[in-house]
Design a protein around this nucleic acid. Structure first.
Lengths: 375, 375
DNA sequence: CTGAAAGCGCTAACAA
DNA sequence: TTGTTAGCGCTTTCAG
């Protein structure tokens, strides 16, 4: 094993050089140079073997592979990306509102699935509906030179993203449309889905249908509100603005708003049906109806499915989104861009599905309703 | 925060070449060299300003900052890590079973929270209870030279991890104890929590308490089963192995197992209470009891809380884990290691909490039970 | 205080 | 087929 090539010129080494890893910086990791020395070959040969390039004699390959195993060598992906012509890091970033939100968690998982097939790791970050944090997260990712970004934009921080797009960074927007960005977008049919939900209620005889929704700073919330208005118009129903509770945030405020609908309004003007434009809003509303013992009297349809919605009593009828499909589609589009597809940006609409479970099929019953709430 | 808008540099040298980014590999990104050229300073001065090192004259700093802004310069974290003495990448990896599982999603979120405070990004990966995939994910992360790893081990793939630990990679194990690894571990009190649940049922008069649990290849499943046996012993109750359904996987098999308990056993030997050792098992069991219309007759306590457990009827009593605390603790321990703490590995037990919601407080009622199931 | 040179671990381009 | 040289973008070392 006396394989001193003499050309190393590495001043920092010493002792049993062949076995001893060269650098403590790399946490005791062997480098390509170490492998080359142990195998008695040039460093480029090691590179060829490690990257499975052709044009290496079997004998050499065997020697190198043995050295690789002996040293437990693993290539440094960062160093590789730095030097490589295409500069690819085989990492992508996913920026969502909250990775713990079931919708985004499922989306993240779907993205990961596609990413592993592309030998790519996933950086995940939560923006918490905060533009500046979104910017920071996205920047932290681009600072690491990710190959691409999947973003559910919070709304405001789009400009920074725009400059990355202009630089040529592949970006796919999910969940929330951003007109200003010329990138692929994968969106649920928010307006259509909301209209479906409200039409469904109207078809069951409801004429006083309330809207409870998320902050209107969020595009999806606005689209769902638009769908609500559109469906009312289509059904020939007037919009009573007292029945529109937008700008809710979280379960608690939704619960409060729902209670207010039945306590703050004059008798007889109460809604007989509620359309809940978001996940957590729906849950808050269900809580409120339970407290009022109205869960079997007032119809409810929610936008976005949630686990156990079918096990509640009554089961909660929802317009379900498909986060897995959104994630899969977004990731597929992203990798197509990363691999060089240069077509015009495309927007893919992922359809929603109405799931009838009981709460949305309750028919209006004004008299019983007043009595129940009063008692 | 200088309020100066350093436009002073205008007109000083340049030409188009100074604005033109040097490298197309970097996707049209300016490099330090570009900034240095535009500012008319040495590259090291740029490095000092960018890294906020001391010993730069204010005038220089202003010029450099102006050039940084003009070019939209952002340092390449990868290149920086490659050269830096400590080799830190400011990235950590989190390997769990499934990032879409609410327990792990919450854990991931908690880890992320700590990580951002340390200026660190999070690589997330799902191992899907598959040892070889776990190995691949962890390896993909270490190939990127993450500063540390948080892993919920699937059980088998621990050896590879061990060699990373030996190399000095900071690793924290969460959720599932691994005796063989000398690393920090953050675990829920599985055995104790399970025993609590069963004792709670016994205290409510139950003598025939069934166990329904996850695959026993998973350490946590074994610990919870041990807690079950221990609590029965403590209560002076015999273990009837016909009431022990382990090795379930997923909701469907849990539902089937629960049904079997009430159809496959002789009359009078049915359980009056069920302990469900895992999230999805609990949900499957609830489904089964609904089908049998036994939900108000048979007591249920689940291990691990889940959203809406309180909104079911009856509310589902659970022994809740605290994934956020697990994640926060694990991340805190990890960063302490990354920052050089060299104490002996520590195991932190995160306590579980019994949440009484109704289903666990049902008292045994054998006669009614037989009748109901028969009808 | 400032900058030139060296080199992290690797791949690209070009010898041999 | 193999190896040598250069250099990715950055930090370190060390000389001005």
């Amino acid at each position: 094993m006396s394989t001193e090539t003499g050309t190393a010129g590495n001043g920092t080494e010493g002792g049993p050089a062949a076995v001893e890893p060269a650098s403590r910086r790399a946490r005791g990791r062997a480098t390509m140079k170490d492998v080359a020395r142990l195998a008695g070959v040039g460093i480029k040969t090691v590179s060829r073997v490690v990257n499975r390039e052709s044009g290496v004699s079997p004998a050499m390959a065997v020697r190198v592979e043995a050295a690789v195993r002996e040293l437990g060598y693993r290539p440094d992906a960062g160093a590789s990306a730095l030097r490589r012509a295409d500069g690819r890091t085989s990492a992508i970033g996913v920026v969502v509102d909250d990775v713990a939100n079931p919708f985004f968690a499922a989306l993240l998982r779907a993205v990961e699935e596609v990413a592993v097939r592309h030998g790519t790791v996933v950086l995940a970050g939560s923006a918490d509906d905060d533009g500046s944090r979104e910017r920071e997260v996205a920047q932290a990712f681009t600072d690491r030179r990710v190959d691409g970004l999947i973003v559910a934009p919070s709304g405001s921080a789009v400009d920074e993203l725009g400059s990355e797009v202009d630089r040529g960074l592949p970006v796919v927007v999910v969940d929330r449309a951003v007109e200003a960005l010329r990138v692929d977008q994968v969106l649920s049919t928010n307006e259509l889905g909301a209209a479906d939900a409200v039409s469904h209620l109207a078809a069951h005889g409801h004429r006083r249908i309330a809207f409870l929704g998320d902050r209107t700073s969020i595009p999806t919330a606005r689209e769902r509100l638009a769908g609500y208005r559109q469906a009312l118009a289509a059904a020939g129903l007037p919009v009573d603005e007292r029945l529109v509770a937008a700008d809710l945030h979280g379960e608690a405020s939704a619960e409060g708003a729902a209670l207010a609908l039945f306590t703050g309004l004059p008798d007889g003007t109460w809604p007989t049906a509620l359309f809940c434009a978001q996940n957590r809003v729906t849950i808050g509303v269900v809580r409120a109806l339970r407290r009022l013992r109205l869960e079997d009297r007032v119809a409810v349809v929610g936008f976005d499915d949630f686990p156990l919605a079918d096990l509640l009593q009554p089961g909660v009828t929802v317009v379900a989104q498909d986060p897995t499909r959104v994630g899969t589609t977004a990731a597929t589009l992203l990798f197509a861009r990363i691999d060089g597809r240069a077509e015009a940006p495309r927007t893919v609409w992922v359809p929603t599905t109405l799931l009838r479970r009981g709460s949305g099929e309750i028919r209006p019953d004004g008299a019983a309703l007043s009595a129940a709430a009063r008692g």
